[in-house]
Write a protein that binds this DNA or RNA. Sequence first.
DNA 1: ATTCTTAATCGTATATTTGCGATATAGAAT
DNA 2: ATTCTATATCGCAAATATACGATTAAGAAT
Lengths: 110, 110
Amino acid sequence: MAIHKKEEFSTKEQHLAAFAKAISHPARIAILSVLAKRNQCICGEIVEILPLAQSTVSQHLKELKNAGLIDGETDGPRSCYCINWKAFEKFNADFNSLFEKLKEANAKCC
Amino acid sequence: MAIHKKEEFSTKEQHLAAFAKAISHPARIAILSVLAKRNQCICGEIVEILPLAQSTVSQHLKELKNAGLIDGETDGPRSCYCINWKAFEKFNADFNSLFEKLKEANAKCC
DNA sequence: ATTCTTAATCGTATATTTGCGATATAGAAT
DNA sequence: ATTCTATATCGCAAATATACGATTAAGAAT
């Protein structure tokens, strides 16, 4: 692969793609699902639920945090995470503004 | 990486992740955006719009088709694509059933 | 039948992701 | 001060994704 061309697309396209990328792995969906149900959760609980090593879970958490989908606070030796609902609302809004408006009008190919 | 562990998650988690993965690249978002606006579109038009080589666009189209997000029909030497809106509705429904129900109740971490 | 047009596929190079064990770090408990 | 506990980070191996040029395939036009 010569060069990555992601920068040549619009900001909105890049932003949507980045959000989608963050949730494009079942482990990260599972983490978000746990957080949505419990409102907040420490890392260790997530490690126990997922079929992955602690270091791997920590990496997934980091990705979610970098993408802005979750917030994290350290609480003594523990780390407490929760969903950043604003990011979800923004994704929903952007997603729908791109794809939902024409639903009614559409039929099949050609 | 020893083994991929995606199969160890629930079907719903895998399905959501697969959809997200399909839209996790700006080029594929751009393709879907064009299709949403035009209802249907032949491959060549998409190639002209995107800053990518024909073979690369064709690959992205294939991924979107494999993931079920678009349908394609061949029309003589051309290929005509359109969005599979049902897949989008399913994604929206699954996504919201996982993440939307608790929005109100949620505050910040810990 | 040959040539032209359009799109898919192949082969290849490089970048990124995924996963884990080992190690480091940092606060808590003794 | 030392030890314990919880989590992050490092280093590595293997799998996947991204991109493109070259080639193939298949219908259209001559």
